[in-house]
Amino acid sequence: MNKFFGYILTPFHYLYFGLILVIFHPIQWICLKLGGYEAHKRSVDILNWFLTSSYYLLGNSVHFINNQQLPVAQPIIFIANHQSMYDIPPLIYFLRKHHAKFVSKIELASGIPSISFNLKYGGAANIDRSDPKQSIAEILKLAKNMKDKNWSTVIFPEGTRSKTGVMKPFAVGGIATILKKVPHAIIVPVVINNSWKMVQYGSFPLRAFTAMSWEVLAPISSEGRTAEDVVKAAEEAIREKVVP
C-alpha cells in the first residue's frame, strides 16, 4: 500500500520540492546581498520549512522532539545518525536558533539550486574526501566560526547514509578536530528514525504514509573525556533509540 500510493504521490512531491529549490535560489541571493548573513539565514530557515512540508504530500509525518533546554549562546555539536537526504531539512529548521551548520561533501556545493548556494555561502564545511588537507582546513574554518560566532554544527559520524536504518560505526575524526578548537562545545546526540523508509524503494517511488521522527537527546559532558569516549557515548545513546 505504501508503495502503491508512492507511485501516485511522488510526482507531486518532486514537483513541489523542485519548485521550492528554484524559487528560493534567487531569494537567498537577494537576502545575502542586501541583508547579509542574518537575512540569508532567515531565508534558509523558511526554505527548509517548505522543504519539510513537502513530506506531507506523500502522507508522511514529521515528529521533531526536543525536550532539552539547550543554550543558544554556546556552540553545540549535534551528533546524529544518517538515514537519507530527507534527514536534513527538519534539522535545519527545528534547530534554527542554534545556527547549525553541516559538514558536507564538496560536490553538493555546486549544481543544486538553493542547496548548493546555502552550502557555499551559509557557513558549511564543504570537504573534499580525496584531499585530507582541504578537509581539515574546512573543518577548522567551521570550528573557528563556532568559537567566534557561537554557531553550532550537525555531524553525521557514520560518514554515509544507512539505506536500511541499521547504524554504521561512528568515526571520531571531524568531531575531535572541532573539540580541540572549541573545547567548550556541548555534545548533543540526535536520533533519526524511519527517514530511510522514505527512499526504501529508491528515488521512485518514494514511500508514502511513513511516520518519521527526530529526537534531541540529553547532552553528553565532554569534561575530562577524550573525543573517542564522547563519540562512543553519543553512538550508544543514539543506538538505543533507533527503531530496527
Rank of each mutant, 00 (worst) to 15 (best):
S104N: 03
A233R: 04
L206A: 01
A100G: 05
K3M: 11
C31K: 13
S152A: 14
N118Y: 07
E138K: 03
V230I: 15
T10K: 09
P90F: 04
S116K: 15
R96Y: 11
L34F: 10
K133N: 03
P132M: 00
I186V: 15
I136Y: 02
I76L: 15
I65H: 04
L91V: 06
M198C: 15
G224F: 10
V230D: 10
G165A: 09
I186W: 07
Q74T: 03
L57D: 02
R207H: 06
Y16L: 13
L51M: 03
F64G: 05
K141D: 12
P113I: 08
E235G: 07
E240G: 09
N66I: 01
A143H: 07
Y201N: 06
M198Y: 09
L34Q: 09
L140S: 14
D131C: 03
L217N: 01
F5K: 02
V166K: 09
I186F: 12
T153R: 14
Y201C: 08
T210M: 02
M1G: 07
G202C: 03
M198D: 13
F156C: 02
G173A: 12
P90N: 05
E107D: 08
I76K: 02
V154D: 04
I79W: 13
S54R: 00
V62H: 05
S114V: 08
D148I: 01
H98W: 15
T177E: 12
I187M: 14
P26Y: 08
S53R: 07
Q74Y: 11
I112G: 08
P132E: 05
V166I: 05
A80I: 00
H99P: 03
N194W: 03
V230W: 02
Y7D: 13
H25R: 15
F170H: 00
Q134A: 04
I155W: 13
W29V: 01
E228I: 10
E235W: 07
G122K: 06
A39P: 07
F4Q: 11
G165L: 00
D45N: 15
L91K: 04
V62D: 02
T52G: 00
G202N: 00
F5N: 04
G165N: 07
I30E: 01
S221Y: 05
K120D: 13
